[in-house]
């Protein structure tokens, strides 16, 4: 396993932990940027240059700008350490630990993981485009349609008035809209 992967993996894990543990949301967001750029570096090291560039542009660029923008707008303060927050932290630590203890042995069992003998594939834009528009044309078009569906869904939810107290349905009945808890397990 090349040294570069070890370093990148360590960086990825450290920054992912940082996202959760930092109490200032801006610090968390910056950690997330490091994480996303780290993933882009892994892609680049695997010679998937196109994916690396897209990862930087879409995630580290567009999405992170949005996240930081929202954080600034909301003027969010440093998160207080509350009891429920600590409980949440401990619980998620236990669940994550369980997951690692289940998955870990399988991976250790197969150590050292060797790459299959395969003809070298090129991650260049040209090669990717060729595959995308020939062999994977159907999934590609479906993905495009999926984005369309997401847009329409967002438009519909934005147009529908939510929880309007002046709506006849709400003001007439005594309905506060909560689901009857009769069948909660």
């Amino acid at each position: 396993m090349p040294l570069v992967f070890v370093i990148l993996s360590a960086l990825l894990i450290a920054s992912a932990v940082g996202v959760i543990l930092f109490r200032n949301p801006i610090h968390s967001a910056l950690c997330l940027v490091v994480n996303l750029v780290g993933v882009a570096c892994v892609f680049a090291a695997l010679e998937a240059h196109f994916l690396a560039v897209v990862q930087v542009i879409v995630y580290a660029g567009a999405i992170m700008v949005l996240v930081v923008f929202v954080l600034m707008l909301l003027n969010s303060k440093t998160e207080e350490r509350t009891l429920s927050g600590v409980i949440q932290l401990v619980l998620s630590g236990i669940i994550g630990g369980c997951l690692v203890s289940v998955v870990g042995p399988f991976i250790i069992e197969q150590w050292p993981i060797v790459a299959r003998e395969e003809p070298p594939i090129s991650g260049s834009v040209e090669a990717l485009g060729k595959v995308l528009y020939t062999d994977y044309i159907f999934p590609f078009e479906t993905a495009g349609f999926l984005v369309m569906a997401a847009l329409v869904a967002a438009a519909m939810l934005a147009k529908t008035k939510g929880g309007d107290p002046n709506h006849p349905r709400i003001s007439e009945g005594k309905n506060d809209g909560t689901i009857q808890a009769g069948g909660e397990q």
Binding site: A149, V152, K161, I170, G177, T178
Partner: peptide, 23 residues
């Protein structure tokens, strides 16, 4: 996976079509 997501994505929004009810 893409078929499942397309189906689900549309359904998520359809569930909220009567948004005036908080249920």
């Amino acid at each position: 996976f893409l078929g499942l997501e397309l189906m689900s994505m549309a359904l998520y929004a359809l569930c909220g079509a009567a948004l005036y009810r908080s249920a």
